[in-house]
Design a protein around this nucleic acid. Structure first.
Length: 108
DNA sequence: ACATTGACTAATT
DNA sequence: TAATTAGCCAATG
């Protein structure tokens, strides 16, 4: 995984507005598009995004990236939910996952 | 080269 | 809704 890829992922995550969220899959798609636009080969998928976040995600709003079901990473569930609540991210009724329909964000 | 492992996903039950 | 299963892509041993 080279630095170009890592940077692309971190830059994108850093642009997610407070109160919104993106899924790993969507992040992967957008990053893929950016690479293609830059003339580079499309690579990576949701799991690669996860790898990057696990290794280098500490400096960006990682809690705004959730899985396809709207759940934050299993290891940081409680912490992530607290942060999401704090910034008024739309959550499901039980408060354990992000309400994707309302909170999903796609870059302009 | 092969097997295992993940901050994953989509389809099936 | 929640558990299971089979794909998935790249890193690591």
């Amino acid at each position: 995984m080279d630095d170009d890829y890592v940077e692309a992922v971190l830059d994108l995550v850093a642009r997610i507005p407070a109160g919104r969220a993106m899924t790993y899959g969507t992040v992967a798609e957008v990053v893929g598009d950016e690479l293609a636009a830059a003339g580079l080969a499309r690579r990576g998928g949701p799991r690669q995004v996860g790898q990057v976040m696990a290794r280098a995600g500490s400096g960006v709003p990682w809690w705004r990236v959730v899985n396809a079901a709207g759940s934050p990473p299993a290891r940081h569930t409680t912490r992530a939910l607290a942060l999401l609540r704090a910034e008024r991210t739309p959550l499901s009724a039980d408060g354990t996952r992000v309400a994707l329909r309302a909170a999903i964000w796609f870059p302009d």
